[in-house]
Every structure is written in C-alpha cells, then in structure tokens.
C-alpha cells in the first residue's frame, strides 16, 4: 500500500488518485445515463409495446420543434423563470439588507429561522398545502377573501389565476434562499471598507454600488444562477397543485417532459426533450458566467 502511495507521489499522481472515487461515481451516475439518454433520443422507444427499438435519426427532435404545445410550455417556462427569479432576487435582497442592518433586533434569530422554513419543505408538501389553502370551497385564502372583500377566487381552477397562483408559491418558497445568499454576500464584504464608507458618510445606494456589490456579486450571481436552473426545472411543486392545468395554463417544460416520459411512456421523444432542456440550462449557465466575468475579461 505504501509502495503505491510512494509511486503515485513520485509521479505527481496522488491528487488525481484522490479524485478517482468521485469521478467513478460521477461517470456511473451522471455521464453514462446522460449518454444513454442522448442515444435514446434518436430512437423510437415505447416501453408499453414491447417493440424493438427503431432508429429514427433526428425525427424525435423534429417532432419536438413542430409541437406547438412544447413551444407554449417553453414560453411559459421562460416567463416563469424571469418572474420567479426576478421577484425572488428583489425581495430576497431587500429582506437580506433588512436583516443585515438589524443585528440588534429582538427575535431576529427566530424570525430568520421562520423565514427560512419554506425553503426546507419538500415541494410536494408545499404544493399540497397550497392546493388546500387555495381551494375555492374550503380553502383559507378564499375564506378571508370573502370575509374581507366579498370575493371568491378559483385560484387553481381559473386559467387567469392559476399561473400567478403557482408563481406566488414558488416565490414564497424560494425567496428565503435569496435572503440567505444576500446575507452571505454581505458577510463577504470587508468590514474596514464598510467602516470607511460610514466615516465618509457615503449614501447607502453608493455604498451598495461601490462596496457591497463588487465584493458580493459572485455569491449573488451564484444564487441567481442556481435559482434560474432550479426554476427552469420546476415540476413537483406545480404538478402537485394543478398537474399542469387547468388546461395547459401551468404546464411548464418539466411537466411536459414528465408527461411524455411517465404518462405517455414515449421514452425516445421524452429523451430528446430532456436533451433540449439540458442545452437550454447549459446556455443559461454560460450566459451568467459570461456576465459575471465580463469586467475581468475586459481588464
């Protein structure tokens, strides 16, 4: 054993050897299934018929590009990502700054703990709660709407309301994450610079722009990036509340994918859609990284 370690050391291979277990895990559980899925996306594969695989070339991809429903789902998803991540970032940063500047507030810890609790819930549980809260017959939301404003809204059954209703649940659930990222970003700002700004009586907006953001932007952008990818993949939260309905009102791309794979069992077609979704997620990541490194590249 000692001999192997020595041999690895002599050839500067020890760091690579330490990576091997993780790489094996990564290859077996990520890369191989991904490659399998890429392969499958060129075939007709329906597990309910028992028919042999049939090579289709690009047919599955062409079918997806021709599918009006997929384009609708994609546009709904992009809108969902923009609205959810945008509002979560604004609210998260505002609340993050509020908590950062109120370190002596009584009950701060309890308030923070309570504020973070939605993020800890599983999406299925949160979806189930809200399905009941939104219920037009016995839901508490309608109870108070009726009591206070004489209104009854069919949040999840009305095409006009369903989309904003599920969006609101996502914002409720994930704003705490952006608060957390904001607090982490603020924590990364050197105290000396902040104190200097205070001594110079720099207005808060300039303090934010010139001191906080340059130091904390990486963490904030990372938070936005993670939320963007996550919002793009949103499925379980909405599926529990509406199954993508009423009609197609809340059918995001991940729900379409689920329905193709596990309701219609058209695995080849679903694999092609999964690959397209993956490419979109990669594009998102690249755009973020480009923006993040823009200044450094110019310098």
């Amino acid at each position: 054993m000692k001999g192997i370690a020595k041999w690895l050391h002599e050839r500067n291979l020890f760091p690579y050897a330490l990576l091997v277990p993780v790489l094996i895990f990564f290859i077996v559980w990520n890369i191989l299934p991904l490659l399998w899925m890429v392969g499958l996306s060129f075939y007709k594969y329906d597990i309910t018929t028992g028919e042999p695989l049939k090579f289709l070339g690009m047919d599955n991809y062409q079918a997806i590009f021709r599918d009006h429903g997929i384009w609708q789902a994609l546009s709904k998803t992009f809108l969902f990502v923009i609205l959810a991540v945008g509002l979560e970032t604004i609210l998260g940063m505002a609340l993050g700054f509020l908590f950062w500047g109120s370190s002596k507030m009584p009950g701060r810890r309890l308030a923070l703990t309570l504020l973070f609790s939605p993020m800890i819930l599983t999406p299925v549980a949160a979806g189930t709660f809200f399905r009941l809260i939104y219920d037009p017959v016995f839901g508490i939301a309608n109870y108070y709407l009726e009591a206070w404003f004489g209104l009854k809204i069919n949040f999840l059954g009305d095409v006009k309301w369903a989309y904003p209703a599920v969006l609101m649940v996502d914002i409720w659930m994930w704003t705490p994450f952006m608060i957390l990222m904001t607090l982490a970003a603020l924590g990364s700002v050197p105290k000396a610079e902040l104190e200097a700004a205070q001594v110079d009586r720099l207005p808060w907006i300039r303090r934010l722009w010139h001191i906080v953001l340059p130091h904390g932007k990486f963490i904030l952008m990372l938070g936005i990036l993670l939320r963007t990818i996550d919002a793009f993949k949103t499925m379980d939260l909405i599926y529990t509340m509406t199954s993508g309905g009423p009609g197609n009102a809340t059918e995001l791309i991940a729900i379409s994918l689920f329905r193709k794979a596990f309701e219609a069992f058209t695995m080849g077609n679903a694999s092609a859609l999964a690959i397209i979704s993956l490419l979109i997620a990669i594009a998102f990541t690249s755009i973020y990284l480009y923006i993040l490194n823009y200044k450094e590249r110019r310098a």
């Binding site: 095409v159 197609n248 309701e263 219609a264 069992f265």
Partner: peptide, 18 residues
C-alpha cells in the same frame, strides 16, 4: 398511455378555454 395523455390534455384545454 399515449392516447390517454393526448385526450386528457385536449379535453381539459377545451374545458378551460384553450
């Protein structure tokens, strides 16, 4: 499953004005 998936989507789409 495929036949069902299509009609469930279209029926409910009609129901909700789609």
């Amino acid at each position: 499953s495929e036949l069902l998936s299509i009609q469930q989507e279209e029926f409910t789409s009609y129901l909700t004005g789609g």
